[in-house]
Amino acid sequence: MARVVVDVMLKPEILDPQGQAVQRALPRLGFEGVSDVRQGKRFELEVDGPVDDAALARIHELAESFLANTVIENFTVKVEEEKAEAGE
């Protein structure tokens, strides 16, 4: 089993009031020097079987048609390395 991560972010030109609210709260919490915050979504897909080109193409299609609304959002698809699952 492998994990594929789809990150979805509002396009840069789209106003993100949630991100702004987070950014405005930072100085109150003692965090200085952060001039902008954009909030997005992360989807972790546990995929049965091999993540080959065909599987990635299907996931790309899923992201484009469903997980993201490409009118307002951009997305990236990446395969997460199977790491250290046997324990180190």
């Binding site: 509002l10 789209i14 106003l15 009031p17 949630q18 609210a21 609304n69 009118v71 307002i72």
Partner: peptide, 17 residues
């Protein structure tokens, strides 16, 4: 209807949250 692309554009959260 916007999600189905029968109408152009998209809807997002109110700007005042």
């Amino acid at each position: 209807l916007t999600e189905a692309h029968l109408l152009p554009g998209a809807m997002l959260g109110n700007d005042h949250l």
